[in-house]
Amino acid sequence: MGGFDEVADRLYALSPRAFTAARDEAAARARSEGDRELAARIKALRRPTLSAFAVNRLVRSRPDEVEPLADLGRALREAQAQLSGPVLRELSGQRHRVVAALTEQARRAAAEAGERLAEAQLREVEQTLRAALASEDAAAALAGGRIAAALEETSDLPAGETAPPGKPETAPAPKPKTEPKTKAKWAAALKELRGRVAQAEAALATATGEQREADRAAQRLADQVERLAGESGAAGERVDRARMALERAEGRLQAAREAERARRDEHGTARRRAAEAEEATEEARTELDRSRARLAEAERDDEG
């Protein structure tokens, strides 16, 4: 049945509705094979929520589109201690666009598996994607494709992007002057980060366009299938009517053949009877001729 990782990957590729039964079956199989430790680990796997399933499916079905998210998160975490508030706000806007695009891709990925995400579940998907941007651990969990629930954003988000409700923002402490080399270093890092974000946005835009075209093509095919189904149904009705007409015609043909055989039999009987009557008539004529001859002879004898 494979090792734990193989079993877990297979289970977390299933929809939440199918997960529990498949997990229990895998655990029972491991137990029957004598591997109680593996059975216990499998049994401990949590059933994924619908939003977690959507993210897992996104990671599995669209890895090239998710990879820029990991690059962006790494770059943000590397640069957060050095970047100023205005730059972080600029990157935050780009982050929101990336998260929104991937959330839409996750919705589509779930729909392909027959699952529909409600607004609350879409918000959980967004939360999980933001958590992957903010935390290396969350990014690793997302990349594994085995999350069971929405990931939480941790405190290592880039500073200045969010503030707790009801608490005034405090002025940042004065930073020591940065050496020219350090400034150049972080300017280069910022430039690289912006390039990665631009690449991610371009990749997502391309993927979104391809997805729209695929949706249109799928709709066209669905329309064609529906039309063909209608034509097939009409053709089936015509075939059924033709089959019934053929059966009726075959019935009439069989009856006509049986009537023909009966008439042939009657004709044969009539012919035999006619032959017998003709034979009897001939015998009667012969007997009449003999009788007439005897009568004539008797009459001659009587005259003489």
Rank of each mutant, 00 (worst) to 15 (best):
A222F: 07
E276R: 04
R248E: 15
T269R: 06
A205P: 00
G236S: 01
L253G: 01
A189C: 04
A245L: 12
E237A: 12
L228W: 14
A198V: 05
A203K: 07
A187N: 07
Q211D: 15
E213L: 07
R241Y: 08
A234P: 06
A256N: 04
K181D: 14
A217P: 04
R261D: 09
A277V: 05
R194E: 12
Q199P: 06
T269S: 08
E266A: 02
G251T: 05
A200D: 00
A184N: 14
G236V: 01
E210D: 09
L221C: 07
R196S: 09
A203D: 10
R241L: 12
L204G: 00
L253E: 09
E250V: 08
R257A: 12
Q211W: 14
A274G: 04
E276G: 01
T208W: 00
R238S: 02
A234R: 08
K191L: 11
A270D: 01
A222T: 05
G251I: 03
D240Y: 08
D215K: 08
V239A: 12
T208N: 01
L253V: 14
D265S: 09
K185Q: 11
A222H: 03
R261M: 05
V225I: 15
A255S: 08
L221S: 08
A255F: 07
Q211M: 13
K183H: 12
G195Q: 07
A229G: 13
R257N: 09
S232Y: 12
R227L: 14
D215N: 06
G230Q: 09
A259R: 04
L190M: 10
K183D: 15
R243T: 06
E201I: 05
A205G: 00
E258F: 00
E226Q: 11
A229I: 02
A242E: 11
R263V: 10
Q224P: 05
E250Q: 12
L221T: 13
E213C: 02
R252T: 13
G251E: 11
A207G: 01
R271I: 04
L204Q: 00
A249N: 04
L221I: 15
K181I: 15
A270G: 00
R261Y: 01
A200Q: 00
A259C: 01
A188H: 13
A235K: 04
T182L: 10
E210I: 07
A189Q: 05
E210W: 04
D240L: 08
T269E: 13
R194K: 12
A202V: 13
E247W: 09
R252N: 13
A245I: 05
A249K: 04
R272T: 13
E213M: 06
R272L: 14
A235S: 09
G251D: 07
L253S: 06
R238K: 05
P180G: 02
T208P: 00
A274L: 03
D240M: 12
A249S: 09
G195F: 11
A189R: 10
R264Y: 03
V197E: 02
L228V: 13
A255Y: 06
V225K: 08
E237Y: 02
D215P: 04
Q224A: 15
E213P: 01
V197K: 00
A202D: 12
R196E: 08
L246D: 11
E247G: 07
A187H: 15
T182Y: 05
R261V: 00
D265W: 05
A184D: 15
E226V: 12
A277H: 02
T206E: 14
E247N: 13
